[in-house]
Design a binder for these strands. Structure first.
Lengths: 217, 217
DNA sequence: GTCTATAGGGGGATAGAC
DNA sequence: GTCTATCCCCCTATAGAC
């Protein structure tokens, strides 16, 4: 087993166990035992658990976010000087992490679930992970604003918040859906999931915001 | 300090710390230190950490789920023999946990956040908590089925899944929304949150499911 | 590069004095 | 009912042999 192998085995096993049990609940001992490497190897290659977490996310997050930017660019180019399509924006945000599920070579469903758990981790780990994101995420509120020019910015953030919740839950809790539907729904049908979730979210984004009954308008 | 006080202080403090840091990450030592009681008191009153978790949820979940059933009953009674309104069903599911936020006497925003974290806890704790739910949750798929009679059951479960994700994220991650919107959105406006989330979700539920382009129809 | 051994801290749980 | 003291476990991290 080469040194590269050891490093990769640690990353792959950590990714899987983090996804299955959460970061806090996964010990370095559990990772090294499953990977078949020595406990001290983690510290030799990464230095600390926090650095390992950064490495696990750093390895996959770049490609996912680059793909998001590429899809968003294409969507905006298609629109020209018109507002970009909501469907295109939503797909640019959702499709790249969701498609990891059908792609074992790039982390498969493990990193997909891990991304969905992002908002569930304790604030300490969330901060560590958000730092790996860069400024990618600021482009989506801007694009949504162009697609929904008449919607007040405040309402746009509410809608984006609901969207993020549905996306994260879909990435994270596929097992729950199978259980809930008694096997009728198949989360491994990635394009079917994307089609349904996009339609649901675009409708939500387009829905008029009901006025506050307590306010004069 | 009476015995009742000690018990309640442990429950209140555990509820708050579980909500802030997650169940796994909260130690009995942290709870007893903040509550100003002795570590051994937890074992005297509850017996174990798992029993304490059950007690924390058992105390509030009953009233929340009873309120859900009451709202659902009213919604179905209003409809008579017609299909119940989607808005009524969605509100029956979402309003009771969300309104805890404005009700400090019944656990305030702590238990509200705790309910939103339900799907984020490790499977061990999720099982412990789900056992406290009883059969309450099976009535909602049935009501949705009556409200959307032409939608295949499989599609209904997908939509319910997306709905649950948006609801849980809204209950859990209010801090993130404030940060994201730079203070423009106010999660303490409970009725405003309910109004926006309901409108978003009803639109998503009503959205036609796009056909699979690979299938003959 | 890989191992053993251990430091040093925290966790849940319990016994037994008061 | 409430406390102290303690058992025994697992954790991250590191030192040092090989």
């Amino acid at each position: 087993m080469t040194a590269e192998d050891t490093r990769e085995r640690i990353l792959d096993t950590a990714e899987r166990l983090f996804a299955q049990h959460g970061i806090e609940a996964t010990s370095l001992r559990a990772i090294t035992a499953e990977a078949g490497v020595n406990l001290a190897a983690v510290h030799y290659y990464f230095g600390s658990k926090e650095a390992l977490v950064r490495a696990v996310f750093g390895r996959r997050l770049g490609p996912v976010n680059q793909e998001r930017m590429k899809l968003l660019d294409e969507c905006e180019a298609r629109a020209g000087s018109n507002p970009p399509s909501l469907k295109g924006i939503v797909e640019a945000l959702i499709a790249p992490p969701l498609r990891l599920r059908g792609n074992p070579a790039q982390g498969g469903e493990n990193f997909c679930m891990l991304m969905g758990q992002l908002f569930s981790e304790s604030s300490k780990w969330r901060q560590v992970i958000f730092a790996e994101f860069g400024e990618t995420m600021s482009r989506f509120p801007a694009a949504l604003k162009r697609a929904l020019p008449h919607l007040p910015e405040k309402e746009l953030f509410w809608k984006l918040h609901f969207l993020i919740g549905a996306m994260a839950h879909t990435l994270r809790a596929s097992g729950l859906l199978v259980h809930l539907s008694r096997g009728q729904c198949d989360p491994d049908d990635v394009e079917g999931t994307l089609r349904r979730l996009t339609a649901f979210l675009v409708a939500g984004l387009q829905a008029p915001v009901p006025p506050d009954p307590g306010e004069q308008s």
